[in-house]
Every structure is written in C-alpha cells, then in structure tokens.
Design a protein around this nucleic acid. Sequence first.
DNA 1: TAATTCCTTTTGTAGGACATAATGTAAGGT
DNA 2: ACCTTACATTATGTCCTACAAAAGGAATTA
Lengths: 247, 247
Amino acid sequence: MHSNPFEAGTFRPLYMSDLKNDIQPLEASTMTDMVELRLREYLKRKSFVPGDALPKEQELADALGVSRNVVREALSRLRMLGMIESRKKRGMVLTQPDILGSLERVLDPLILGKNTLRDIFELRLVLEMGLADLIYLRKTPEDIAALETIVAQEVNKHQKPFRVEHEIAFHGKLYQMTGNDTYMRFQKMLLPVFEYVLDYEIQVNGQAEVGKVTHHDLVEILKTGDAEDFRRGMKAHLKPHFDRLKA
Amino acid sequence: MHSNPFEAGTFRPLYMSDLKNDIQPLEASTMTDMVELRLREYLKRKSFVPGDALPKEQELADALGVSRNVVREALSRLRMLGMIESRKKRGMVLTQPDILGSLERVLDPLILGKNTLRDIFELRLVLEMGLADLIYLRKTPEDIAALETIVAQEVNKHQKPFRVEHEIAFHGKLYQMTGNDTYMRFQKMLLPVFEYVLDYEIQVNGQAEVGKVTHHDLVEILKTGDAEDFRRGMKAHLKPHFDRLKA
DNA sequence: TAATTCCTTTTGTAGGACATAATGTAAGGT
DNA sequence: ACCTTACATTATGTCCTACAAAAGGAATTA
C-alpha cells in the first residue's frame, strides 16, 4: 500500500491540461449556454460598470430570439456568480461579483478527483510559503501580540479537534496579517481539502508527522528575523508535507 | 498624484472582511436559490460520486414542491459549475466540477473593484514566490533546455506586445514545470488582472521598471543553485512589483 | 406638505405544450 | 438465429401564457 492519497497512475500529460481553455467550443451545446456567453460578451463590450441597469428580461429574450425562459436560466447563472442582482420592478443591475463565491460551491473534497486534490494540496503549501513577503510588509506589534496569545493557548492535547482548531487559529491569524482578504478567504476555502488529504494520510500511516519548527518558533522569528528567515522557518514547519510530495 | 492603481482610502477593516462567509443568510431570497442549496446538500448527503444518475427534473420538482422551471434554473447553475451534465433521455449525471471554470467567468479586471484588484495582484506575486519549491521537486534537464530556448528568443524590442508575450512564455513554462495543472491554470487566469494593473502603472509612471535579475539569471540559478537561491532570484526579479506595494 | 390609495411595471413562479434526441423494442428480412 | 429497420418511449430543451408579488410612481385626500 502506498502512502499517497492521490493514487499513482492518474497523471495526465501536460499538453492536454488546458486544451479546453485554449480553444473554446465551436458552439455551446444549449441555447442557455449561448445566451450566457452572449450576455457576458454584451456586458464586457458595452463596458458596463457596477450599478448600471440591464435591459429587462423580455427585451433580452426578444433581442436574442429566444424565450424568456432561456434568458432566465442564463441570468440565473450570472446571479449565482454575483455578477447581477435583480429586484422586482427595478430591474437588474450589474454588481461586483464575488470571485471566490463560486469556488466555494465547488470545493467539495468528496467530489473532486485525485489529481485536483493533489493540486490543491500543493497550492496550499505554495500559499503558506508566500506568506512571508506580505507579512513583513504589514505586520504590526499588535499582530505579534495576538499571535503570542494564540500560541500560549496551545493545548497539549493531541486529539484531533483541538489540534485542528489551533492550527486554523494560528495560520488564520497569519493570513489576516497580510491584509489581503482574497488571499485569506482563498486559503480558508482550501482548508477542508487540506484536512481531507491529511485525514487520509493519518488513516493510512498512523500519526501525522509534525515539523521541527513550531508555532512558537515562528513567532520568535517574526520578532527578530527577516522575511527570509521566516520563510525558512515555515519551510521547516511544513517539511513533513513537502516530504510527502516526494514520495 | 499617487502611483497606486488601487487608490488610497478604500481599505476595509478586517473584521468586516468575511462576515458574509461566517454567517450565512437565514433564508435564500428566491426559490431558485433555495433549490440550488437543497440540491447541493442532497448531493453531499447522499454522497453521490461522479457518474451517478440524478432523479429527473419533474421528480425533483415534485419532491421540492416547486415548478419544474425553478428546478431547471437551479440545475442550470450546477451545470455551469460543471457539477452535472445532462443528456436527453439519459437524464442527468454528476460530474467532476471544473473548479476554476467558474472563476474564469468572473475575473474581468473591468468589473472587479480596486480592493480585489490589489488582492489579486498580490496573490500573483505570492504564487510566483511559491514556484521554487515545486520546481525543484520536479524539474528535468529537458525543462531547463526549453527555458534556455525561450530565453534565447528574447527579443530586445521593448515594445509591449513582444515583451508581454515573452514574459508569458517564460513564466508559463516555469508553472508548467511544477506539474500542477490547477496551479498553472490559476496563474494563467490571473494574468489579465496583473497586466491590467501594470498597464495602469505604466500609464501613470511612464516606463515599467524591471528587476535586476533577468530571466537568463533565473535559468542559471536553476542549473547550479538550490530552491532558496532560486527564490531569492525570483524576489529580486519581482522587486519592482514588491516595491510598488510599499507605496 | 404629508400620508394614503391605486395603478403600473418587472421580476418570480407555475403549468402546459411540443420539439428533439437517445434509448429500448418489436417487426421483418436474410 | 442474426442483423437491420422502424416505431414507441422517455427525459431534457424550448416556448408560451398566466398570474402573484414587490416596488416605484402618480393621483387623491387630509
């Protein structure tokens, strides 16, 4: 039995990887797909800005030569993406989409394939390694104090719920210190996938290893060292995870 | 005039940042929203796996007590996310969603707000800094050769289209070397936003600065140095961008 | 002027109808 | 028996009509 949750032999050659992105389908299969595409084109071409009002459903339907039903299905998609909002009588207005909202709906470890799970696991490691630069750009003494509080509350219990909770608190605070909401939310969304892979790991290999550099050490580095020191510390902290990738 | 495309004074306090994610609306406004939610719950609860068939639209409508129309609008959303596929007569089957597909639709620099633009700009820098670890895990001599070919074709023309093209070729190859499709696609999607911000920059400040470490230097490091060397090199290569964040 | 009532408009929901395509099935020919 | 053809069946895709609900606007009244 191999200790890898991603399973060997599922690797796809790279040239196939994003073919779907390079060439777009000649014709979207259903009317709804086409209308969705047309609407997005329309919004771009007319360079609508958030707040602008859209034509009414019936007008769009007439202009596109399809039924109002089809238009509504397409609009429903845009509404889900947060691109538009609509209120009765007032019509529809363009809004600033919530770029991560749609990702959230799809990031279910149980549904994602092994390849994607592995990719996301790695992506999270990349995000952790990238913390250093932004943190050193913006950290404040208050942040450090908050981190120390969190570390002080570190329970010795190695049972899972406590441990995970603490991990999230500590790393979450680190992300917060970057002042980058999107970055923080993104990382937060990736957590379930990360946990899922680790759980699998533990189930197979017994106990999860832990790096030599602790949270306490990382805080010390933050106080005295520079960004490169911190990154080296983080790399050591995450070493077990990186080692996993080599296998 | 400030040299910052994100505009000052738009910073939101962090405690407001992800309120919408922590507490979810008590009741989704429209039937379609609720049905969409219910359907996703249903899929998770029954632990459907890709390939499984879903009940027919009319059955879902009856079970949920809504019209087939509403069900279809909700299904249309899931279809857009790539969670389901449906063919006539055969019904609908669960599929592995394309997690980045939905992001792609929404990443339009013209629509995104200043805050998000800034966040994404930083996120891309983070991704670049994270390249080192994965590259050193998987690089091959062929990859290095390919990089050298790209560098050799580096045109001296500083005109924009050529320059950008070359940037994409070089950095794209780096991402490809990580063997992480999701990582690569993600970065690719962020490119337009990155370019958009840089364009703004150039327009305001005249010429775009360029780091002291060139592509050629980076390749040399890849041949002789270790991951840390490479990261240091990349940091120097991106230095102008990081400096921008300080302002 | 301010509050109320009524009208109008636009989205949201319902239900029926039919086209279309894919599947299964039975008839018919070899 | 086996292959082919033709037909019936079924689920999605599209269209249509109708009406409920909410929100804005106008007219009326205190």
